[in-house]
Design a protein around this nucleic acid. Structure first.
Lengths: 244, 244
DNA sequence: CGTTGCATTGAATTTATTCAACCAGGGTGG
DNA sequence: CCACCCTGGTTGAATAAATTCAATGCAACG
């Protein structure tokens, strides 16, 4: 079961990937951070483990320290939507007044998180305008990404979606140059559920790009960007699918 | 041009529709509210008017007092996505650090809004934990709706989308009983851009429901729910399209 | 009274999905 | 140690769903 490493996720060192967006810790001064940390029960999660499930009583809120999680919702039948991936520095918690978690959070790779008792966190929050400001800023930014993602889900074609996704992943892996392999830590199914496609379509589209020399797929967990401009063209929909 | 009334939007009395979600004003005490109001430049908007446009320098934030606005983003070509509709009580502002508006806000019906100079609002916000709390709560709730909407956009079929949409509208018009007409204040195009469909598909699907007696469409701006249970079945995808 | 924007309808087409089969690798248990 | 059985990924052919293209009606507007 322990499915690990073959996706090139190094064993989740904290801050493995530079983040463009603001991380929670960065929103706090050292004092505040320490005070908050005192409330936290740290938790290590193995690959595929569930942090919290939709419908469960919402007793904790979370801060991701390392690794990648997926946040998903289900429809009555099997259909599932990953609404976002969580990275280190991200905050995760239900909105005030929600009694149950409205989503499931599950690791993609192994991960670490702080679990904070909700009541106590809320109390801390009341006493810390600094934290409130930080969370507000993060929430607004996330809202913007969510809107961007809606645009993708609603109006982009499969190839546009995949191209956008690959570029997004690339933009999150800073230290990496375009020649070296980009890690695709999630399965085809995860990608499909994030982009609103089927796994077969993801696979086909990815291989299509490979065949045309836009990217290379040394193994299912890695991609190499061969022609970034082409990928950007495809992502923006300014170019339709094209032979090599 | 002044396109009005034939969509059954009464001339936008404030608080025309009960809101399930928390409105900004409700988040503030009377004192705070008055202090905030002092910063506001009220603005009346006619139907179709633009409150702010994507790319414009973001000098104001807004609070909707009455009416309905649509918030949309564009893709390079004409494709457009309405990421949400704004109602009275909603707050609208770019995330901290954004220099330009990342969306366009345009009225669906006539509307009224407070325009608040961004600097001054930010200052006020720093001094009002009460407001920060309120905005945070609203942002988190909106995030949840956004995630719900992603699920719809990515995985629901046309009929499911339309059914969900009609029910959502119905749930927002409280005083109304199921026999009486439900107002559809937005055009087919707006609906299409909100649900990730084409106007033709919206029209066809709506008419399909009409033909099968699930709803009635006395005029393009109104619908009457004839068989709510059926509609709910369709919205949840537990039932595929079916003859009368 | 011609023009314009919205809504509607039909027919052809496109795109991604569905269904089905197959391969590779890792783990398990005989 | 090896056969077997997972899961994840890939590929092909048939299908279904919504889109595209095209045309029409209708109302308000100037």
């Amino acid at each position: 079961m322990a499915f690990e490493g073959n996706r090139g996720v190094s064993p989740a060192p904290a801050a493995e990937q530079g983040r463009a967006r603001v991380a929670l810790c960065l929103q706090l001064g050292k004092r505040e951070r320490t005070r908050l940390e005192a409330l936290a029960e740290p938790r290590r999660l193995r690959s595929g483990e569930i942090l919290c499930s939709v419908g469960e009583p919402a007793e904790y809120v979370f801060v991701i320290l390392s690794g990648i999680l997926k946040l998903h919702k289900n429809l009555a039948d099997g259909r599932r939507q990953i609404s976002r991936f969580l990275f280190s520095g991200d905050y995760l918690g239900p909105s005030e007044g929600e009694l149950k978690y409205p989503w499931t959070a599950q690791t993609v790779s192994s991960a670490e998180a702080w679990c904070l008792e909700r009541q106590r966190f809320a109390e801390f929050l009341r006493g810390s305008p600094e934290l409130a400001q930080g969370l507000l800023r993060m929430a607004w930014e996330e809202l913007e990404s969510a809107r961007e993602h809606m645009l993708l889900l609603a109006h982009k074609g499969a190839e546009e979606k995949i191209a956008s996704f690959v570029l997004w992943l690339a933009s999150r892996q800073r230290e990496r140059e375009d020649g070296e392999p980009l890690s695709l830590p999630m399965t085809r199914r995860d990608i499909a559920e994030y982009l609103g496609l089927k796994t077969e379509t993801v696979s086909r589209t990815l291989r299509g790009l490979h065949r045309r020399g836009v990217i290379t797929l040394p193994d299912p967990g890695h991609a190499i960007l061969k022609r970034r401009e082409e990928l950007e063209l495809l992502a923006s929909g300014r170019r339709r699918a094209r032979a090599a």
